[in-house]
Design a protein around this nucleic acid. Structure first.
Lengths: 115, 115
DNA sequence: GTTAGTAGGTACCTAGAGGAAAGTGACTAT
DNA sequence: ATAGTCACTTTCCTCTAGGTACCTACTAAC
């Protein structure tokens, strides 16, 4: 894609900022090692199919690790990797930006819609 | 959405990191004030319909400003706003992260696919 | 024997983002 | 008279991420 040539941050956006990857990474970064159902419950609205898909993708990209315990019932634990954890400062910056500027975005929308 | 409750950075991701908003914001942040066709050419693969849609959304959210000059042929200039410019450090961090870690993502993929 | 719990897999469907191609209006240059 | 510029708009189409619903194997507990 040429848009990737034009914009050097497009690849990392694809990796980290799709609809469900951000909540997954953020949750694993905040709460540490979690099981499948725990992730499912914390994120709330995600379906198991999509959760599996995103977890596989994140594992493939090396951002999380998956540990399978062959018990009955089976137990699988997901944890953020060192590579994934290196995104933590960026998550923090984004949270800060939200706190400071999200209200201004709302005001801009009101101004725009009011005209 | 509960995912937004669970993840405090989901709203800003919606604002800034959808497929085309990132290249647009990044380009305006790098090259300053640009006309419609200039943006179109720099980004390369975007279609005019989508470019218009994303520009309207970014204007509504207060991240860019639009200046219309009623000439013939018409001239419209887009510029990043102060609010939009406040994202620059985050863009910089993401570019840095890419330089340092994208190769490791590629390696992780090779390992994963090789198994 | 049937229910519950875990970590998914599978088949089907929908909505919405995005792409392709053509048109528009007003004027200018050749 | 024709072509070209600019900033879109409109129509139609495709593609895929995601949602719904149901299924699987395994065992313990009731």
């Amino acid at each position: 894609m040429e848009s990737e040539l034009a914009c050097p941050i497009a690849p990392v956006v694809d990796l980290v900022f799709s609809r469900w990857t951000t909540p997954i990474l953020w949750t694993l970064n905040e709460y540490g090692r979690l099981r499948f159902v725990e992730l499912e419950r914390r994120i709330g609205t995600i379906t198991p199919k999509v959760l599996t898909q995103r977890l596989r993708q994140l594992e493939r990209d090396g951002l999380i690790t998956r540990t399978y315990h062959p018990e009955v019932p089976p137990r699988v634990e997901y944890e953020i990797s060192e590579l994934g954890r290196s995104l933590a400062p960026i998550f923090h910056n984004l949270a800060e930006w939200s706190k400071r500027n999200l209200a201004e975005v709302d005001q801009a929308r009101l101004r725009y819609d009011g005209n």
